[in-house]
Design a protein around this nucleic acid. Structure first.
Lengths: 196, 196
DNA sequence: TTGAAAAATCAACATAATGTTTAATAAACA
DNA sequence: TGTTTATTAAACATTATGTTGATTTTTCAA
C-alpha cells in the first residue's frame, strides 16, 4: 500500500497546495506564481512544498492529473453504454457535466497557456476511449490515414469544448454532446463508409 | 518610421536573442531556461536583454509572432488561388513547406508545452483564412452551429499538423495538404450541403 | 567624414526566490 | 501508548531578477 495516499497529513497538505494553486491561477498568470505565493496562501511552511513537489510545474501537473483521473473514471462508468449505443454521447455527457461542476478549475486549465500538458492529456483521453467506439461502429482497418482521422477529430473535440467554455457555456450539455458526436460521426461516415 | 526595426544593432541583438532561445529550447525545457542562459549563449550582456524584453515569455512570444507573421505572408500570397480553386490546399501547402524548411523551430514550438500561445495564434491564422474560403464555397449562413464547425476543423488541422511533425513528417507535403483539405471539406459538405 | 544620438557594456547593487539543512514539534498510525 | 513520520522553524548558501549610472561602442544622418 502506498503510504503517500493514506497518511492524512499528506493528503491534507497536497490538497491545500492544489487548491491554493487553483485559486491563485484565477488571480494571475501561472508563470508569475511562486512557491512562496502558494505556501503562504495555503498557510504551510515553504519547505513543506519541496517534500511533495519539485516546482510549481510539477504541482500543476498533479492538479491536471487529478482532473484527467476524475474524467477517466466518469468515462469508465459510461463506456459500456457508449459501446451499446455506438455513440460518443454517453461518454461526452459526463465529461461535459464534470466541466460544469468544476467550472473555475476547468476554465483555468483550458485557458491556461502553460497547461498544454493538460491539452495533451485530454487529447489522449478522448483518443483512447473514442477509438474503440468508432472502430466498433465502422469496422475500418487501421491505416496511417485513419490515424490522421483520429487526430483530427480528437483535436476537433478539444476545440469544441474550449470554444464552449470560453464562450460562456451557452449551449446545454445535451446540445454540446450532440454537436461533438455529430461532427465525429459524420466525418467517420465520409471516410469509413456506412456504419457496420 | 519605427526605429526599432531599422537600427542594425537592435535587429542584431533581437535576432541573437531569438536564435539563442530556439537553440536552448532544443536542449532543455523552456521553463528551465533563464535570461542568463540566453544572454550567455548569445554572448550579450544580461542587462541588454531587459532593453528588449521583460522576461523569457515575452521573448518566446516574439519568436512565435515571427513565425505566425511569416506564415501569414505566405498565406496572403496564395489566398487568391485558394479562392479560385475553392480549396484549402493552396494555403495549406506553403504552410507545410514553411514547417519543413524551419523544422527545428516549428518542432520546438509545436511540441513545447509552454507555447500554446503559439497554438492559439496558429488557430486563428487557420480560422481567419479558412473561413472565407469555406464560406465562399458552401455559402452557408453563419450560426452558432457553424461557429462550432469552424472551431472543430481548425483544431482538427492543428492536430493533423502536430501528428505529422511528431511522427517524423512521413507523408509528402502534397499528401498532407490533401488529407487536411479532405477532412475539412468532407465535414463541410455534411453540414452545409453540396458546394454552391 | 564627423558629430550627435542611441545602443550595448560593465560593474555594482538590492531584492527576491530557490533549494537545502538541522533540530524541534506535532500529528497519525498501528 | 509508543513509534513513526510529516510538518515546522530558522538559518543558510546559491542563484536569478531587475535596476542603476558611468562608460564604451556602434549607428545614423547631416
Amino acid at each position: 500500500m502506498d503510504k503517500t495516499l493514506t497518511d492524512r497529513r499528506i493528503r491534507r497538505t497536497q490538497k491545500l497546495l492544489k487548491e491554493s494553486l487553483i485559486e491563485l491561477m484565477s488571480e494571475k498568470d501561472f508563470k508569475d506564481i511562486t512557491i512562496k505565493d502558494i505556501t503562504e496562501h495555503a498557510d504551510l511552511n515553504r519547505g513543506t512544498f519541496y517534500l511533495h513537489y519539485a516546482d510549481t510545474y510539477e504541482l500543476l501537473k498533479a492538479v491536471e492529473d487529478g482532473v484527467t483521473g476524475d474524467l477517466q473514471s466518469m468515462i469508465d462508468s459510461h463506456l459500456e453504454q457508449a459501446h451499446a449505443e455506438q455513440s460518443l454521447i454517453p461518454v461526452l455527457l459526463p465529461v461535459i457535466r464534470y466541466i460544469v461542476k468544476n467550472e473555475k478549475l476547468c476554465r483555468n486549465l483550458f485557458e491556461n497557456d502553460y497547461a498544454s500538458d493538460f491539452h495533451t492529456a485530454i487529447h489522449s483521453l478522448i483518443y483512447q476511449n473514442g477509438y474503440r467506439i468508432i472502430e466498433q461502429r465502422f469496422r475500418f482497418s487501421p491505416t496511417a490515414f485513419s490515424d490522421y482521422f483520429f487526430e483530427f477529430v480528437t483535436y476537433g473535440l478539444i476545440g469544441v469544448l474550449r470554444k464552449w467554455i470560453n464562450g460562456g457555456m451557452r449551449e446545454s450539455e445535451d446540445e454540446l454532446a450532440r454537436i461533438g458526436n455529430d461532427a465525429v460521426m459524420s466525418l467517420a461516415r465520409t471516410f469509413f463508409g456506412a456504419p457496420a
